[in-house]
Computed example of a mutant assay.
Amino acid sequence: MTEARGFRAFPVRSRRRHHTWWGTEWIQAMEDTAVDSGLTKRGRRIAADGRIGPITVSPGRVAAVLDGACQTAVTVEALSGNAWAALVAEASVQSGHLAALLDGYLPHALSGLVPGIGDLDAQCSCDDWGNPCQHAAALCYQTAWLLDGDPSLLLLLRGRSMEELTAAIAEHRANPPVCLTDPDDPTPTTLAAEAFARPVPPLPEPPPPATEELRLLSIEPPPGIDAGALYGAAATAVTRARLLLAAG
Rank of each mutant, 00 (worst) to 15 (best):
D36H: 15
D36C: 15
D36N: 15
D36V: 15
S37I: 15
G38D: 11
G38H: 12
G38Q: 13
L39I: 12
L39R: 15
T40Q: 08
T40G: 03
T40K: 08
R42Y: 08
G43L: 12
G43Q: 12
R44Q: 13
R45M: 12
R45H: 11
R45G: 10
I46Y: 13
I46E: 07
A47T: 11
A48G: 13
A48M: 01
A48V: 04
A48E: 04
D49W: 03
G50A: 06
R51W: 06
R51K: 14
G53T: 08
P54M: 02
P54V: 06
P54W: 02
T56I: 08
T56W: 00
S58C: 07
S58N: 07
P59A: 09
P59L: 03
G60R: 04
G60C: 02
G60V: 00
G60M: 06
R61F: 01
V62Q: 06
V62F: 02
A63L: 04
A64M: 04
A64V: 04
V65F: 00
V65G: 03
L66V: 14
L66W: 01
D67Q: 05
D67A: 08
D67N: 05
D67K: 07
G68Y: 02
A69L: 03
C70N: 13
C70S: 13
Q71E: 14
Q71M: 07
Q71L: 10
T72L: 03
A73S: 15
A73T: 12
T75N: 11
V76R: 11
V76N: 06
E77P: 06
E77Q: 11
A78D: 07
L79W: 04
S80K: 05
S80T: 14
G81A: 13
G81M: 08
N82A: 14
N82H: 12
A83S: 08
W84Q: 13
W84T: 13
W84L: 11
W84F: 12
A85Y: 05
A85Q: 12
A85G: 07
A86F: 08
A86S: 13
A86I: 01
L87C: 04
L87F: 02
V88Q: 09
A89D: 10
A89T: 12
A89Y: 00
E90G: 02
A91P: 07
A91S: 10
A91C: 08
S92D: 08
V93I: 13
V93K: 15
V93C: 09
Q94Y: 10
